[in-house]
């Protein structure tokens, strides 16, 4: 376990250092929530506080899909050079490598989420005190899972990378639209609702909304928790397998 933590830290700090040396990217990442809030705030102008209650968790899940899903891009670059191969020859724990690589995107997401929550407070967002940490923890697990899947996709699409762009672009929007992040699915036709129910993101969105609202005992919280754990387990398993099979 200590080796695991040490290796995760090693990989994470390697990923983070260039960003700290040149923090423009990090500032840009932090600007994104402001943009979202400004746009949504304008759209929701005059709407009641409950709209924020519905939108903020949605925005957070949406950012979770765009940020960590793009985490594999960095790996694609390292795969084309020899840097990833070099790391694979070291005794680093493989799962720690995956988690460490996802950590930058995950912690960026955490900072963005906290920023959004804080900024939305004066606008009428009323998050539940216990629900917030639980919701954030769930989001982190989801982010690690998505990040790991994104790495698997990067490994599969090397050397050209085409597959990476095609899949990440074409999967992202259906996942988002069919999850009820932006528009409720209740009024959608039956077949669309069925598709929505097959989409793990749907459960995460529902769980997040319940947690921020303070409905901690709502069954959706359990389903959402299961969904993120399954995504994380599948992501890490496939990631490990991809590294074992050789890149």
């Amino acid at each position: 376990m200590t080796t695991f933590l040490r290796d995760t830290t090693t990989v994470f700090s390697r990923e983070l250092r260039p960003a700290l040396r040149n923090p423009v990217g990090l500032l840009f990442d932090m600007g994104q929530p402001l943009l979202f809030l400004f746009l949504f705030g304008t759209l929701l102008d005059g709407a009641v506080g409950s709209s924020w209650q519905w939108f903020v968790p949605g925005i957070l899940v949406m950012m979770c899909l765009t940020g960590p899903m793009g985490a594999g891009y960095g790996l694609l670059v390292e795969l084309l050079g020899g840097a990833f191969e070099r790391l694979l020859v070291t005794p680093l724990n493989r799962t720690a490598m995956l988690v460490g690589k996802c950590m930058k995107a995950t912690l960026t997401l955490l900072a963005q989420a906290v920023l959004i929550i804080l900024l939305a407070l004066p606008l009428g967002f009323e998050p539940h005190a216990v629900g917030v940490p639980a919701a954030l923890a769930q989001l982190m697990v989801f982010a690690v899972g998505l990040g790991a899947l994104s790495f698997v996709l990067a490994v599969k699409s090397a050397p050209s990378g085409t597959l990476f762009y095609v899949v990440s672009q074409s999967v992202l929007f259906p996942l988002l639209l069919l999850s009820g992040v932006l528009l409720p699915l209740e009024s959608a036709p039956g077949w669309l609702r069925v598709l929505g129910q097959l989409n793990p993101v749907t459960y995460v969105v529902a769980a997040q909304r319940a947690l921020y609202a303070g409905d901690l005992a709502d069954p959706s919280v359990l389903y959402g928790g299961i969904a993120v754990c399954v995504v994380a387990a599948v992501g890490l398993h496939l990631g490990n397998r991809a590294m074992r099979k050789g890149v």
Binding site: D7, T10, R14, P18, E78, G81, A83, L87
Partner: peptide
């Protein structure tokens, strides 16, 4: 080449030691 493009020479050597 083994070094990551975004990483300074010395940083990569330190990371490698940590690995």
């Amino acid at each position: 080449n083994s070094a990551g493009e975004e990483h300074r020479v010395r940083d990569e050597l330190v990371s490698q030691g940590r690995c």
